[in-house]
């Protein structure tokens, strides 16, 4: 236990609306400006579409929509955070839309507490923990869970819902 307590991890923080979220820096590949996204038809709204990342086609997810907020508007600060997500033991590259990217911070394990059961409007399983910094709480996301296989099924469910309408 003593080892984990002194262990610090770097996180990338970003904002959705007024809330500050964080991602394990090891999961982040790069941060891009928000460019044109090609919408893939018959998919749920939170799947914003695909972008061209130096010759690769990368899907982009609107985290605001995913977390029950309104759709991300394009501003000068809007960014695409390119992450490496492990879905079903496979690593895939995925972009996440953020209103603005803040900074890279270090948090030691001691300053991270377990996620609260209620009160964040987010599903608890998406949250790895609550970090605390300068009296502000930061929601640390478990990015693998956010885009897990169950969520993938949601893409397909959304598709059938769309075709039924």
């Amino acid at each position: 236990m003593a080892v984990t307590e002194t262990m610090t991890t770097q996180y990338l923080t970003f904002k959705l609306s007024d809330e500050v979220y964080a991602l394990d820096i090891g999961k982040v590949r790069e941060v891009l400006d928000f460019t044109t996204v090609t919408k893939v038809p018959r998919t749920p709204d939170f799947m914003r579409g695909v972008i061209n990342l130096r010759g690769s086609v990368v899907p982009v997810v609107d985290l605001r929509l995913k977390f029950g907020l309104t759709m991300t508007e394009k501003t000068v600060n809007t960014c695409v955070i390119i992450t490496e997500v492990t879905v079903d033991d496979d690593t895939t590259i995925l972009g996440a839309l953020a209103d603005s990217v803040q900074e890279v911070i270090e948090l030691d394990a001691a300053s991270i507490s377990a996620p609260p059961r209620i009160g964040t409007k987010l599903r608890t399983e998406f949250i790895k923990g609550m970090g605390k910094r300068d009296d502000r709480f930061i929601i640390i996301l478990d990015v693998d869970r956010v885009f897990s296989a169950d969520e993938l099924a949601l893409v397909q469910a959304g598709e059938t819902a769309a075709s039924a309408s």
Binding site: T38, V40, P41, R42, T43, M47, V50, V57, V58, P59, V61, V87, D88, D90, T92, I93, L94, F147, L152, V155, Q156, E159, S163
Partner: peptide
């Protein structure tokens, strides 16, 4: 189109 868009009907790639 990657894993996230697997099973999207009517599209075979990009």
């Amino acid at each position: 189109l990657g894993k996230m868009y697997k099973g999207v009907e009517g599209l075979s790639g990009a």
